[in-house]
Simulated scan of single mutants.
Amino acid sequence: MEILSSRSLLISADPAALTAFYRDRLGLAVAREYPGGTVFHAGTGLIEIPAHLSDDAVARPTDTLWLQVRDIAAAHRELRDANVPIIAEPETKPWGLIEMTIADPDGRRLIVVEVPADHPLRRDVR
């Protein structure tokens, strides 16, 4: 199977509030708006918030997004200043990544990650 692109769809009982959170409080750039929702740039990925729920759609606040940032201290300040709920303050985890956890309006966890310069994920394996 060849995958050409992908995106995460975040289903919400209140898509307008969720869209405002990702646009205004996290500051994600809008990739596309359409009558059925909004698509945001999220690094090399996309996050889509459909504006309309199907009859069987339910919010899944146990879903988790992993968002890599260049500078977690700066991201922490920006998120705190935007009154984003910070569930766990930035800390270096045993696996070497610096992580903090925030929550969106549906209670969905977002793990914000900085990969330190000396971490194996940064090694050039060419």
Score class of each variant (00 low, 15 high):
residue 56 D to N: 14
residue 78 E to Y: 00
residue 92 T to Q: 14
residue 109 R to D: 07
residue 66 W to N: 10
residue 89 E to R: 12
residue 81 D to M: 00
residue 103 A to C: 10
residue 58 V to Y: 02
residue 42 A to P: 05
residue 108 R to T: 15
residue 84 V to G: 04
residue 67 L to S: 02
residue 106 D to W: 12
residue 108 R to N: 15
residue 75 A to H: 00
residue 53 L to Y: 02
residue 58 V to W: 04
residue 56 D to I: 15
residue 104 D to C: 12
residue 93 K to C: 05
residue 62 T to V: 10
residue 109 R to N: 13
residue 78 E to L: 07
residue 87 I to T: 08
residue 95 W to D: 10
residue 96 G to D: 13
residue 110 L to K: 09
residue 59 A to G: 13
residue 67 L to A: 03
residue 92 T to K: 14
residue 99 E to W: 03
residue 69 V to K: 05
residue 73 A to Y: 00
residue 108 R to P: 00
residue 88 A to R: 13
residue 99 E to G: 11
residue 95 W to Y: 15
residue 114 E to P: 00
residue 85 P to G: 01
residue 84 V to L: 02
residue 110 L to H: 15
residue 81 D to Q: 04
residue 115 V to W: 04
residue 78 E to V: 02
residue 96 G to T: 10
residue 106 D to H: 14
residue 100 M to K: 14
residue 114 E to H: 11
residue 51 A to K: 13
residue 119 H to L: 05
residue 87 I to Q: 07
residue 77 R to N: 08
residue 115 V to F: 05
residue 87 I to V: 14
residue 75 A to Q: 09
residue 87 I to Y: 00
residue 55 D to E: 12
residue 46 L to R: 09
residue 40 F to N: 09
residue 52 H to R: 15
residue 69 V to R: 03
residue 59 A to E: 15
residue 107 G to T: 12
residue 99 E to H: 09
residue 117 A to I: 08
residue 41 H to D: 09
residue 86 I to D: 01
residue 50 P to Q: 06
residue 95 W to G: 10
residue 117 A to M: 09
residue 115 V to R: 10
residue 54 S to R: 14
residue 49 I to N: 07
residue 118 D to W: 04
residue 80 R to V: 13
residue 86 I to T: 06
residue 118 D to T: 09
residue 53 L to D: 11
residue 99 E to S: 15
residue 64 T to I: 13
residue 76 H to P: 01
residue 110 L to S: 09
residue 114 E to G: 08
residue 88 A to F: 02
residue 97 L to T: 13
residue 111 I to G: 09
residue 108 R to F: 14
residue 109 R to V: 15
residue 62 T to F: 05
residue 105 P to L: 10
residue 36 G to E: 11
residue 96 G to H: 14
residue 73 A to P: 01
residue 103 A to K: 11
residue 103 A to L: 14
residue 42 A to M: 12
residue 118 D to Y: 09
residue 48 E to C: 13
residue 97 L to Q: 15
residue 89 E to A: 13
residue 35 P to K: 04
residue 58 V to M: 09
residue 85 P to T: 10
residue 71 D to F: 00
residue 89 E to F: 01
residue 36 G to T: 08
residue 86 I to V: 14
residue 35 P to R: 03
residue 63 D to W: 05
residue 92 T to I: 08
residue 96 G to F: 10
residue 109 R to E: 08
residue 36 G to Y: 04
residue 73 A to S: 06
residue 74 A to N: 03
residue 100 M to S: 12
residue 65 L to W: 11
residue 72 I to Y: 01
residue 119 H to R: 12
residue 95 W to A: 13
residue 77 R to F: 06
residue 51 A to D: 00
residue 62 T to G: 07
residue 42 A to F: 07
residue 75 A to L: 03
residue 102 I to F: 13
residue 71 D to H: 03
residue 35 P to D: 08
residue 47 I to M: 05
residue 115 V to N: 06
residue 72 I to R: 04
residue 119 H to V: 02
residue 65 L to D: 05
residue 69 V to D: 04
residue 101 T to R: 14
residue 112 V to S: 10
residue 80 R to Q: 05
residue 36 G to S: 07
residue 61 P to D: 11
residue 59 A to S: 15
residue 39 V to D: 10
residue 37 G to M: 01
residue 72 I to F: 01
residue 51 A to Q: 05
residue 94 P to A: 07
residue 77 R to A: 13
residue 86 I to G: 01
residue 79 L to P: 03
residue 116 P to D: 09
residue 62 T to K: 01
residue 72 I to N: 07
residue 89 E to P: 04
residue 44 T to K: 08
residue 38 T to D: 03
residue 46 L to G: 06
residue 78 E to T: 02
